[in-house]
Simulated assay, not measured.
Amino acid sequence: MVHSGGEAGNAVGRERFLADAAARGLHVEVVERPAALSLEEAAAGMGISPADIVKSLVVKHKDGSFLFALIPGDRQISWPKLRTLVGVNKLSLPPADMALKATGYERGTITPLGSVTAWPVYADASITGRRISMGAGAHGYSAFVDADALTSALDAVVADISDPV
């Protein structure tokens, strides 16, 4: 798979991710991971369960702003729950180019850490109390981090915002 950022873009994204984590006093462990065709394959390759891979979804607010929704890999975003929590009647997933512009990260690398704009973060309550894996700002890399430290460092709203897949 070819990515427009190339290796240089990958390094910049990873450096931005690490710099933001360090500035927040957040310990992260970045690991190189092989390409995977599915979430299950990615989890197996890292020796973790799909629930331990947390997706950072960029969500577009009807006013044109964005937010991050952190959802465990074995669950999906619950639009009704998230809309109620945010207090709006319309939220959506933006196209890939809009997500890139909003965060500075390509899909598959998105993370709230190091985003070009510090959008609000909403984390599903089921990710707490454990070590999770998430995007590290670059293709082919994942970061391991304590979910409670992450949500605290990001001042995230932690709530039930997902449903089983």
Rank of each mutant, 00 (worst) to 15 (best):
G137A: 09
T109K: 02
P80W: 07
V145E: 08
D97C: 01
A147V: 08
G104H: 06
I132C: 05
Y122N: 00
G135Q: 04
P120G: 00
A99L: 08
G108H: 01
D148C: 13
S115H: 05
M98T: 04
R83F: 08
L150Q: 06
V145L: 13
S115T: 01
R107A: 01
I110K: 00
W79F: 12
K90Q: 13
G135T: 09
R131P: 00
S92T: 10
D148K: 12
I132D: 00
T128G: 15
L150E: 10
S115W: 06
S115Y: 07
Y105T: 00
D146V: 04
M134N: 01
G114H: 03
R83Y: 10
A123V: 04
M98P: 00
P95R: 09
L150F: 13
T128Q: 15
D124E: 03
S115V: 01
A125V: 15
A136D: 04
W119H: 04
K90H: 14
L150Y: 12
S126E: 11
A149G: 13
P94D: 04
G137C: 11
V121W: 09
S92C: 06
A136V: 14
G129R: 02
P80G: 08
T151W: 12
W79D: 03
W79G: 09
L82C: 03
A149Q: 14
S126K: 13
I110L: 09
D97Y: 03
V88N: 08
G140N: 09
M134H: 03
K81R: 09
G87V: 03
T109G: 02
T109V: 07
P80E: 08
W79C: 06
T109P: 00
I110A: 04
G135Y: 00
G87C: 06
D148P: 14
G140I: 01
G137F: 14
D146P: 11
T128Y: 08
P95L: 06
K90M: 03
L93M: 14
K81W: 12
I132Y: 01
K81Y: 06
P94A: 12
Y141G: 03
S152N: 13
G87E: 04
D146N: 14
G135K: 04
G104L: 05
D146M: 09
A136R: 08
T109Q: 07
G104D: 00
T84W: 13
T151C: 15
T84I: 11
A102D: 11
I132E: 00
V116W: 11
S126F: 10
M98N: 05
H139S: 14
R131Q: 12
S142N: 14
R131F: 07
A143W: 07
A123F: 15
L91N: 05
P94G: 10
I110C: 03
T128R: 15
A125I: 12
V121E: 05
T128C: 15
G135W: 02
A99H: 07
P112L: 06
A123N: 13
L113M: 07
